[in-house]
């Protein structure tokens, strides 16, 4: 679709694991942003589920890298 807003090479991400930061750097029920292969990835940590979710940090409507800020 849009080349600018979906720059994460999804295949590469699906295939590779990346060490990003210690778990202590995660902020419960909030987001952080990681730089992975020059792509910005928003990472959300939910302590209740003990789960971590990730998505592109880019907001295509606001055209800014802000999604990790919630």
């Amino acid at each position: 679709m849009s080349q600018q807003s979906s720059p994460v090479t999804q295949q590469a991400v699906a295939q590779d694991w990346h060490s990003i930061c210690p778990a202590s750097e995660l902020v419960g029920n909030a987001g952080i942003c990681a730089l992975i292969r020059q792509q910005q990835v928003a990472i959300f940590y939910l302590p209740d589920e003990n789960a971590v979710y990730a998505l592109d940090n880019y907001d295509p409507i606001g055209k800014a890298n802000v999604l990790s800020r919630g």
């Binding site: 990003i20 930061c21 750097e25 902020v27 952080i32 942003c33 990681a34 730089l35 910005q40 990472i43 880019y58 055209k63 800014a64 890298n65």
Partner: peptide
């Protein structure tokens, strides 16, 4: 202060 970093794993700024 950590809340004011853009990246958790890099000192780079947001190039956008």
């Amino acid at each position: 202060l950590k809340r004011f970093r853009h990246f958790v794993n890099s000192d780079n700024a947001d190039d956008n």
